[in-house]
């Protein structure tokens, strides 16, 4: 069984860093960046090396449509 590859992309300018996506992610894919966006928020970013399962929970709870999930 080949593993499906998924990728999370944060639309950083839309993200307000509320962290709800990270809270629902069981794989620790998302973390708070050390950088600010134009709105002045520490936005979320994908953590290195973490494996996204494509469960879409983060996109369900994101209040700002700031998360895109891609799969192969």
């Amino acid at each position: 069984m080949s593993k499906t590859k998924n990728k999370v992309v944060i639309r950083t300018e839309y993200c307000k860093g509320c962290g709800l996506c990270a809270a629902v992610c069981k794989k620790g894919v998302l973390q708070t960046s050390e950088n600010l966006n134009k709105q002045g928020y520490y936005y979320m970013e994908p953590a290195e090396g973490a494996e996204c399962t494509g469960c879409m929970s983060c996109t369900l709870v994101c209040p700002d449509l700031a998360i895109e999930v891609y799969s192969e």
Binding site: K5, D64, L65
Partner: peptide, 26 residues
């Protein structure tokens, strides 16, 4: 790779909402 959650057509594109972080309105 294919985008799994395409932008809803009845949500305006490229606007940042004014709501506070974690607000339910969005």
């Amino acid at each position: 790779m294919k985008l799994k959650n395409p932008w809803p057509i009845y949500f305006k594109k490229d606007v940042e909402t004014h709501y506070c972080p974690g607000c339910g309105h969005g």
